[in-house]
Amino acid sequence: MNNFEYLRAETLDQAVAAAAANPAAKFIAGGTNLVDLMKYNVERPERVIDITRLPLREIAPTEEGGLLIGALVPNSDLAYDERIQACYPLLASAILAGASPQLRNSATTGGNLLQRTRCYYFYDPGTPCNKREPGTGCPAIEGQNRIHAILGTSEHCIATHPSDMCVGLAALEAVIHVQGQGGARRIPIGEFHRLPGDTPHIDTTLRHDEVVTGVELPPSDYGSNHTYLKLRDRLSYAFALVSVAAALKIEDGVVAKARLALGGVAHKPWRDTAAEALLVGNPPGRERFAAAAEEVLRDARGYAHNSFKIELARRAIIRALEQAAAGTPQSQTDKRIR
């Protein structure tokens, strides 16, 4: 870990100004990802700006009937919040599918959005990596790529975004509130994370001086027709090989609205509106679900060790939609898959 300057921001403006003044500054919230990366010498910030004193710990109702989650709300508090459990159980479930209780106690909503990939090479400064050191190459493409992406990859990077929470947020059409020197912005979750293209070192559309202040959830009307299904190499405490967030609004036996997002398959939470559209207007059923899965995976491409994810994702989508349609969401405590 390098030497760095530590600043504690008392106000949002201070935080923004401190970041703007130093291009090698980093915000720190729960620290569960940033500190690890600093220990590995992957992140070497000159200045660490502690934002944990900022007043961003509330979950407040919005005028539209949704909720605005402060960026510093810990993952645990969010998952166990009564309003979230009642109206956004899909989000609660996605959060509880991730990490461990200890990590979720420290991890924040903003930090979770901005956690970095778990690509082995990215974590190991002894190897090349375009994301860590642009222009050095991507050894994962010809190397160990079991945990890598099958959708939206580029010849420069095939990493995935590891978050579970964000997959839930993508299905729920969350909007990210940010504030920087240029003022406040609202970024739909689908535009927040990027595909790697030829600049894989840039994960998101957030600007360097911008602080995530909150995550807004629009009103939700899926009742119990939702699920978060996470498949991984052990039954808990592992990142997703493939995960699926699904939510359906079923009226008179017909799907009136569908939301479908995948984790573990791309550089961003992967929502597919075309696949959603295939579901709408039809009664829920395996055949329709399979068609939706086909649509999601149409352009999927596998590498030496992760091709299985294409088939796994197909089956996971179908199962998740079955769970959602039946109103039997996946439990995150009982590891038997429904």
Partner: peptide, 25 residues
């Protein structure tokens, strides 16, 4: 322990990616 044969290096060298059973298993 996953070897990258091009680099001759074990790559999943941490507890997040080298999996041992957890309670749920």
């Amino acid at each position: 322990s996953m070897l990258d044969h091009n680099l001759g290096r074990f790559m999943n060298h941490n507890f997040a990616e080298y999996h041992v059973p957890v309670n749920a298993d």
